[in-house]
Amino acid sequence: MAEPLGAGSARSAVITGASRGLGFASATHLYRCGWQVVAAMRSVDTGMARLRTATGAGDDDPRLIGVPLDLTDTESIAACAKAIEESIGAPFALVHNAGISSVGMVEETPLSLWEKMFATNIFGPVALTRALLPGMRKAGRGRIVLVSSQAGVRGMPSTAPYSAVKGALERWGEAMAAEVAPFGIGVSVLVTGTYDTEIITDAGTNDCRDLDGTYARHHRTMDKRGRAAMRIAARAPEKFAAGLARALDSGKPFDKRAVGPDARMLLLANRFLPPTVMHQMTRLMMGIPRFGGLARREDTEHA
């Protein structure tokens, strides 16, 4: 274990899911900005090798520490929290970035994936937070960052489990913020826009779509439009990392902000437009048939 940095040294940040995507970009950016980074991930050897290459950090650099973490395993979470406290003490920032995604209609998505989604995106982060909060409370400062999504603002078709966990993540953050604010700990919810990471690709998501089934028409249209939108809107992960760094400087007890222009537009629209209008806008953008458009009606005519 690396020794904790001394008083007056760089602030420390724990980032989950730091081996790729937004977590990797964030860990790299914060390290370059002088932070002490604890990169929590499943594959520590592979992930740390990539991080050291990206940052130029040496194997024994106390400002870049890797710890194993499987958010679906309670023993792994407990061991991760212990390793964090032994290496850096109470972290200043706890960034919940790790998560999994899925695509598929509600009828197509097995309950086992719903359970895994909530275990990874909600139950695991809650458990890790509970383990680290006592130390953060005693330190009397810190910030817990929950990385949400546009799907947490509006439930999006074909991503119901992902939308559900991101919505739950935001409600958790809102509730927890009032609880921990008196102890000097703030909570930030970051609504991410579209970024060029594996989570928006076929390789980075759990694909439950039946492309020849009942919703085949939905999938064909949504896939075509979705890919076109991603080519236009997807930004480099490094831009998210800069937004995260700014969020960590917030002095608000609760701070919800968009990171990305498309996320900002969605939050603005969701603030001023009624839910029925937002629903219709989503339907039109996704090319989903009108209400009742695919309903099967029995022929009531008699010979």
Rank of each mutant, 00 (worst) to 15 (best):
G226T: 06
L128H: 02
M230Y: 12
M278I: 11
N121R: 05
S19A: 09
G99L: 10
A234T: 08
T205L: 13
T53N: 05
Q36R: 15
T194G: 04
P157Q: 15
M1G: 05
A295M: 02
S87N: 07
G251Q: 06
L30D: 13
R217I: 12
K166C: 00
R42A: 10
A233C: 15
R141P: 00
T28R: 11
D299C: 07
H29S: 09
T109Y: 01
P125G: 09
T282I: 13
A216P: 03
F240H: 05
I200M: 10
A181Q: 00
W114C: 05
V44G: 08
K239S: 11
A57W: 08
D202V: 12
A7G: 00
G8T: 01
D210E: 14
L128A: 08
M41P: 04
M1H: 00
G140T: 07
G226W: 09
M278S: 10
S250W: 03
D59R: 15
C33P: 09
I100K: 07
A295D: 09
L284P: 04
G47H: 10
A98L: 12
R42Q: 07
A241E: 10
S101A: 14
V95T: 01
P91N: 03
A13C: 06
P125L: 06
T28E: 10
A90H: 03
R130I: 00
A119V: 01
M222W: 02
F123A: 09
T221Q: 04
K256V: 00
R246M: 07
C80N: 00
C33K: 13
K252G: 00
